[in-house]
Write a protein that binds this DNA or RNA. Sequence first.
DNA 1: AGCTACATGTAACGAGTTACATGATTAT
DNA 2: ATAATCATGTAACTCGTTACATGTAGCT
Lengths: 181, 181
Amino acid sequence: MALAHTILATLGNESYSGYDLWKKFSQTSKYYWQASQQQIYRELGKLEKEGAIASEIIPQEGRPDKKLYKITDKGIEILKTWSLEPAEPMAIREELLVKVIAAKLVPKSVILQEIKRHQQIHSQQLAEYKQIEQEKFADTSQLTFEQKCIYATLRCGIGYESYRIAWCEDTIALLSEASDN
Amino acid sequence: MALAHTILATLGNESYSGYDLWKKFSQTSKYYWQASQQQIYRELGKLEKEGAIASEIIPQEGRPDKKLYKITDKGIEILKTWSLEPAEPMAIREELLVKVIAAKLVPKSVILQEIKRHQQIHSQQLAEYKQIEQEKFADTSQLTFEQKCIYATLRCGIGYESYRIAWCEDTIALLSEASDN
DNA sequence: AGCTACATGTAACGAGTTACATGATTAT
DNA sequence: ATAATCATGTAACTCGTTACATGTAGCT
């Protein structure tokens, strides 16, 4: 049920269209919650029906109209109540590891290549996150509590990508060592 | 679609009942794929219909009959074909981080307590994994390629829990620093 | 002429969760 | 007594993915 709450938390005090939210989710919030455009539109519809958010239609010239959503008092209450409940640790479903488990079925080079590819993906992601860190969170002591919270999620993304890269390196070394296949 | 493939990879050369598989998933394989008992039973039904696995009923005294599943040649082909395809990096959906984003709504102590609780969960998990490591993978040089692959997934679990613990510690330090709430 | 960005949605399907249902054995 | 373990499954629901549908503006 957390997508609804993630949207409420993301809305904060600002107004967003579904499209804006989707961009925010796929750009800056992807290290803590991923969602597709369609999921967001559907969830916005549900949240509006519940009265947790309210929309305002902004006519635009030459573009489709925009529907701007704002959190309501009821939405804030829902988010607050949810925030007080304990959070479940994320379920891990890592396809790459399943392929490692099944690795004996394919040439060793295939799995090693795939791990290298993942290492590159994570390295690129890490570089992006580190740049954001430098640009926006260079001086920790100057941050407000709210900014520190946002920074904490970015640190989580940085930690995650670093751990993935380290695992890829370790595993390439481990599996490359001479041994039959 | 990876649950089906995870089951096929887990079956390997052995026979498992749905119940056995569920235990394996909730005990030793949880650091790469999580699935509930119901999901496993449903997926086994589908896989049998497809002809990827075959079952044999083992009558038992005083207990319900057991249905033992084995991978078929067709199942091995399906798994092999899938193994050659690239793997998508896991989608991250971390509830705790959403609560961090919404932290300004609740007393600071609530979120700090929750992070501490997660730190404990991950510490316990890490200890379990490290014990398995000592018991089964003490001497890396003695492992076959297949065992190295299994060890690689355990190392992934160890890396993951370590990264989570480190993040919890960092974040508690970051958010504890004097600043209004 | 074709691609990307802007902007919203419906429909169908597949994956994951929760609740319900049954019933014996073993350990506390 | 009662809880946990063994063992299988159905049904309903929610969440996530993929495909389809529409249409303008601006860039190359």
